[in-house]
Amino acid sequence: MAELIIPGPAGRIEARYTEPPQEGAPIALVLHPHPRAGGTMQDPIAIRLYQMFEQRGFGVLRFNTRGVGRSQGVYDQGVGELEDAAYVLDYMENMTESPRFVWCAGYSFGAWITLQLLMRRPEIDGFLAIAPPCNHYDLAFLAPCPASGLIISGENDKISGPKDVERALTKVRVQKGEVIERDSIAGANHFFQGKQDELIAKCAAYVDRRLIEDEQKLRAEAETKKVRGQAAITDQSDDDAGEDDDDGDDED
Rank of each mutant, 00 (worst) to 15 (best):
D235G: 09
S108N: 09
D157R: 01
P132M: 03
D164E: 15
E198G: 11
G80T: 02
F127S: 08
E221R: 13
C203D: 10
D183G: 11
A131Q: 03
P133C: 13
S148D: 03
G24F: 06
A232Y: 00
P144N: 04
L150Y: 15
S237R: 00
F191G: 09
G69D: 00
R219M: 15
T18Y: 09
N135S: 14
L218Y: 09
G8N: 10
L118S: 15
L169K: 01
G154L: 15
Q116H: 12
P9S: 05
I233E: 04
H136D: 10
L142E: 06
R100Q: 08
R121G: 00
P99M: 13
K163P: 01
V102L: 12
A186P: 09
S98R: 13
G59H: 03
C145Q: 08
R62N: 06
K226N: 05
A129F: 13
C134V: 02
T65V: 04
G69I: 04
R120C: 13
F127I: 14
L142D: 05
R36Q: 15
S184G: 07
E97C: 01
D43M: 14
A231F: 05
L82T: 01
A186M: 09
L142Y: 10
K202Q: 09
K195W: 14
R120A: 07
K225M: 07
G69L: 04
A25E: 04
D183H: 07
E14T: 07
N135R: 01
V207E: 07
D245M: 14
Y17N: 08
H32A: 07
A2T: 04
L82V: 12
R210L: 05
E221C: 05
D247V: 09
Q216Y: 14
M92Y: 11
I6Y: 04
F63I: 02
R66V: 07
G73W: 10
I152H: 02
D246C: 00
N64E: 09
I124E: 05
F63S: 02
G59M: 02
Y75L: 12
L128N: 00
D138R: 06
V207Q: 09
I45H: 06
I180Q: 11
D245T: 12
T96D: 12
V60E: 01
A25W: 08
V74T: 06
L4N: 03
R228Y: 09
A241H: 11
A111W: 00
N64L: 14
A85G: 05
G80A: 10
F192I: 12
V88W: 01
T224K: 12
A147T: 11
E213F: 02
E223D: 08
D84Q: 02
R120E: 08
Y107F: 15
P132H: 11
V60F: 03
T170F: 03
G67P: 06
Q42Y: 13
D125T: 05
D197P: 02
R62K: 09
Y87V: 04
Q175E: 11
R70I: 00
R219N: 06
E251P: 01
D76I: 12
P162A: 14
